[in-house]
Design a protein around this nucleic acid. Structure first.
Lengths: 254, 254
DNA sequence: ACAAAAGTGTTCCTAGTACACCCATGG
DNA sequence: CCATGGGTGTACTAGGAACACTTTTGT
């Protein structure tokens, strides 16, 4: 099979051009259908899913590598991207088991390094602006609800958990949403986003009051039509004020 | 010179036993003289100072390696130790410059890898319980005031800055102090610690009120004698409640 | 007319902040 | 007796939390 022959070449190439034993895993969050989603990739010729990831070129900074990987996977450049933890357990995967799960040839086990330390980044993206692309090792992508994930490859379930926890903490003192929502959105949509991340419901009056008091969004004259109910107003983030709030902090959903 | 000959052996040994291109740097904070201090090591036969650090054995988890390094340097086991960031710029040091600064032989340049990614951990320790020990590469240690650091080796000034920033954020929603102060301490001492970390002064009435309201310290009957002034009461952390507060969060010095 | 979701204001209470004087001790 | 730092209470204010009804729209 072509793919399986290419695997050896692929890893040989990685070994030559990249830092050994160190990788990057990206937890790419998106939001739609009132659900927080994660971008996952299905590995070729298998039913196994995992996070987008990659390796660091020998002369490339880790942050740049993460950006590159993200751009390769999503096609967008300007995004919220943040390192959140480095995963360094001595046993993060079992080479034999992984090769079996991926239906790789028996002799492929040696392609995996003994162990890999992985630097975790998380990104917040607007799903509608993203055109996900699988990589050499994978051939299908999917946005999966963060609350209903199947068992993933490696320790990726754990990595997503830590990313989510970081996001929750972050939300309590920084605004979130600029990168997750389309340019124009309604207050209920924003509230749904916060509720999803915080995993609890919020009072719509208090939420609206607080958000508008922060001064980082502006209400437009437009309204969204379409449902058998009152048309909601559209809002837009004020990019400058949003950025300022990002730096300064202070929200506190306690 | 013995040391310089041993260097080659030392690095050969490291190369064999440890992961290549990946290291750990530890920012060990202590508190005395009303100042926040960092433990620094002077490299042998040079006047250059740097953070304690080390490498990760091939079959060792990164967290365990950090603990090991810290224990080797400070002699204590039970301490607050937390990964805070991974430093992965493509150029974190110049091999030639470092070799020159350390007065290493010219041919020693090749001992350094092209680049190293370093995982940063910070620790909070009670200076009085610590017996710092230099390592093979260094021969003197010193606690230096975090506000008055000389230029350090590599990007260690930057690493300390990031650690300090993390500590400040942490302080705003978690208690700090259990690991930095001796078992018994006075309220003004605790206040001084907070003031030092936050880098601003706090009102003693409000501080005392808030700290005692948190329920994580208990006042002892003892008082500390010694100055030409009213004897301050001694306090002690309630370990269980402290741990609980650590997990749950909520302080907010805004 | 009805179902579905949007929009909005007031009261209460907690917690942060500002602020100043007296007290104990050692020299 | 004086210099030094320790200890303490109150009043104000801002912001979070709880809470319910009316409006708009499509079917």
């Amino acid at each position: 099979m072509d793919y399986k022959k290419q695997l050896v070449e692929f890893f040989k190439d990685v070994d030559e051009r990249c830092i050994l034993g160190l990788s990057i895993d990206c937890v790419i969050f998106g939001f739609y259908d009132n659900q927080l989603k994660v971008l996952l990739l299905r590995w070729k010729e298998s039913d196994e899913w995992g996070l987008p990831g990659g390796f660091i070129y020998k002369k490339e900074s880790v942050d740049v590598a993460a950006q590159r990987i993200l751009e390769e996977r999503t096609g967008i450049k300007e995004l919220f991207l943040q390192q959140f933890h480095t995963f360094g357990k001595d046993v993060r995967y079992n080479r034999v088991e992984i090769s079996r799960k991926l239906n790789w040839p028996d002799n492929s086990t040696r392609l995996w390094p003994d162990r890999t330390v992985s630097i975790g980044y998380f990104a917040l993206v607007d799903v509608s602006k993203v055109t996900p692309t699988a990589d050499f090792l994978t051939d299908e992508y999917q946005w999966l609800d963060v609350e209903k994930l199947p068992p993933l490859l490696f320790d990726h379930n754990h990595i997503i958990e830590v990313a989510l926890k970081t996001l929750r903490v972050q939300l309590s003192w920084q605004p979130v949403g600029y990168n997750l929502l389309p340019e124009k959105f309604t207050m209920p949509e924003l509230q749904r986003l916060y509720e999803t991340i915080l995993n609890r419901s919020l009072d719509p009056r208090n939420f609206s009051k607080k958000m508008r008091a922060l001064g980082i969004i502006e209400r437009l004259e437009e309204q969204r039509k379409g449902g058998a109910f009152k048309s909601p107003y559209l809002f837009r983030f004020d990019k400058e004020k949003y950025k300022k709030a990002l730096k300064e902090g202070h929200l506190a959903f306690s």
